[in-house]
Amino acid sequence: MSLETRRVGPEAAADVLAVVKAAFADRPPLDPPADALAETEQSVAALLAPGGGLLVVDDGRPVGAVILDPAGDRHDTVYLRRFGIDPAARGRGLARDLVRSGLGEAARRGARRVVILAREELPRTARFWRDMGFTETDRRAPYVEMARPVPVRLDVASADEMRDLGRRVARRLRRGDVLVLSGELGAGKTTFTQGLGEGLGVRGGVTSPTFVIARVHPSLGDGPALVHVDAYRLGGRAELDDLDLDTDLDEAVTVVEWGTGLAEGLADARLEVRITRATGQAGPATDRGADREADPEADPRVVEIDAVGARWLDADLAL
């Protein structure tokens, strides 16, 4: 299997149309019918002309497509239109991968927000977009408009830069915010949180909370406390509440390491911070609990900050 996602323009209208027709014809009948079913090669070419699109090809056969349509009145917004996966290629995660590729392409073009239109009669479709971080912003029958910010992707060359990134992110936070950190051992999650604590102005040095599960760092001023959690052994928000942290999580900023998979239970709105080594090389094998920092000078990091939920729709995440 040779799977490839290509940037395309009007020259690929026939291939994009083939995917759109196959995908939308497989959906339940709608009244009024989906506009996509009336598309022609010429109309698809016209849609592709302003901003192009993405085409997923499997061994030379088009199996997925989306058109990226810049909003005429908002230069920071891109619409994802005619999104579809050929029914014969479903069940392989291609839809989620194509959404992520679309978000990345929108970010590459300088957009800050991505918008989709879903039909009210297709709740499963709306659920899929919610799972991908989209939030309802408008409802005009028969459409539901949903939007989300594009992820911010940053190259971080050193531990000092990682701490500085944490300090800059802290300036965007307020009481009740949740951050979910992921990355392999030594990726820099605790270093990032140290900078976050400095930016928030909290008491105490931030270290890995592994052996105590959670630590509370009270504010040295009138700002929010920092709750630093290791979620490796937690099963969800209920267990977090059971920790008796002597602080109201709605009044604090909560940072959860190893929180992937628990995020939905922790908060509807959150910042997902994913840290990877730029070279893709794993660090030295260690016990999971140690999470010691490898040398970022020898192995720089890539940090992706992915904002989920209505809280972040209009927030400025330019860092």
Score class of each variant (00 low, 15 high):
4 E>Q: 15
4 E>D: 15
22 A>E: 05
24 F>T: 14
26 D>C: 07
27 R>H: 08
35 D>P: 09
36 A>E: 15
38 A>P: 00
43 S>Q: 10
45 A>C: 03
47 L>W: 02
62 P>A: 03
67 I>D: 01
67 I>V: 13
73 D>S: 10
78 V>K: 00
78 V>T: 05
80 L>V: 14
88 A>F: 06
89 A>F: 13
93 G>E: 11
97 D>A: 15
99 V>W: 02
101 S>E: 15
102 G>F: 12
109 R>V: 01
109 R>W: 04
109 R>P: 00
110 G>T: 06
111 A>D: 04
113 R>H: 03
116 I>F: 05
118 A>P: 02
119 R>S: 03
124 R>V: 07
134 F>L: 14
134 F>P: 08
135 T>R: 01
137 T>N: 01
138 D>G: 00
145 E>C: 02
148 R>N: 04
155 D>E: 11
157 A>N: 08
158 S>D: 12
160 D>S: 09
171 R>D: 13
173 L>Y: 02
178 V>P: 07
179 L>Q: 03
182 S>G: 12
184 E>A: 12
186 G>N: 07
187 A>W: 08
192 F>E: 08
192 F>H: 06
200 L>Y: 03
201 G>H: 01
203 R>T: 12
206 V>F: 11
221 G>K: 14
222 D>E: 15
224 P>Q: 12
229 V>I: 13
229 V>M: 07
232 Y>H: 10
234 L>K: 12
242 D>F: 01
246 D>W: 06
247 T>A: 12
248 D>E: 06
249 L>C: 05
249 L>W: 06
250 D>C: 01
251 E>F: 04
259 G>E: 01
260 T>I: 00
265 G>E: 09
268 D>V: 02
270 R>C: 02
272 E>N: 09
274 R>Q: 14
278 A>C: 03
285 A>F: 08
288 R>Y: 00
291 D>P: 05
293 E>W: 02
296 P>E: 10
303 V>Q: 03
305 I>K: 10
309 G>Q: 02
309 G>I: 01
314 D>C: 07
319 L>Q: 11
319 L>A: 15
